[in-house]
Design a protein around this nucleic acid. Structure first.
Lengths: 151, 151
DNA sequence: AAATTATTGACAATCAACTTGTCATAAATC
DNA sequence: GATTTATGACAAGTTGATTGTCAATAATTT
């Protein structure tokens, strides 16, 4: 095992504690709001993708549509999303952020952004870009591997 | 929001799908063995830390001792770990890898290492080192943040 | 040495974030 | 027009944990 491979192995596994800590941080920051982590994640997708159907968001999050449906029902119930007039009711319901939903996710995103910004003070843009590239490479490598392993 | 912060935000969130894909890959590779993902993780810690108690491993994995106890009971039940003669039974049971446990985790680690090695072909050692540094920085930043948020 | 406090193992209940399976209906494709 | 696919709704099960509690033992304080 080369030094490079060993370090890459370690790097890959950093994703576990990192993900753990990020979830904890997000959850702590949401604690005083009425938004849960899973509601936040739907709102985030809608703000990123624009008006979308449940199956589309499921694909983006790589989880089952049935679970996204639950999440979507929750945010709809509190009026954070609304159904769009769907051109000819083509296939399924299009959802979009309501005014309140848009405001809420913007606010959450801003608060999170400030924190991330402070984390970036010690890093250069170049460093972040290269790290991003390496992590993307790892991600697509694992995706390809899993594609192969599934069959 | 600067470009750097935006990219760093994205980078942080890459940990989610990455962790997801890694778990899936590990799980798929273990599918033909008698080892489960959580058993693998105990064996890995024991091989990394040497003989350890349940609470020590819980700390290393940052999960509760009660859950690690379950994991440890499982690997003990199939003879992959054994209890060490504990100097004066000082506080709690020390566990160490049995011969079979050591062989199994070595074999798993080797197979995984080969795959990671192939993923690293397109990357330089320098790139991996820098990425590792950035991700470590992110991780400690989030840990510190969570420490503050918890109080 | 005695009293107090902390740690461990064991067990039970609960939770969050999912997946899997099924059904009816509506839409898209052949 | 017939067949296949997609969607929404609902139910049950799984995994990876957490929280709470208890008794026994070990460590610390007085």
């Amino acid at each position: 095992m080369t030094q490079k491979s060993d370090l890459l192995y370690e790097l890959a596994w950093l994703s576990r504690p990192l993900h753990q800590e990020i979830e904890a941080a997000v959850s702590a920051m949401l604690a005083e709001t009425t938004v849960t982590v899973r509601m936040r994640s739907v709102l985030e997708q809608l703000s990123k993708l624009g008006p979308s159907t449940v199956p589309q968001i499921a694909k983006a999050l790589d989880i089952k549509r049935q679970y996204v449906q639950i999440m979507m029902n929750e945010v709809e119930a509190v009026g954070m999303v609304e159904r769009s007039e769907n051109p000819a009711h083509k296939r399924s319901t299009l959802f979009h952020l309501s005014e309140s939903g848009a405001a809420i996710i913007r606010q959450i995103r801003d608060a999170e952004g400030k924190i991330i910004e402070s984390f970036g003070r010690n890093l250069t843009l170049d460093e972040v870009e290269r790290a991003h590239h390496v992590m993307e490479h790892l991600l697509t490598s694992f995706r390809t591997l899993n594609q192969r392993l599934k069959t």
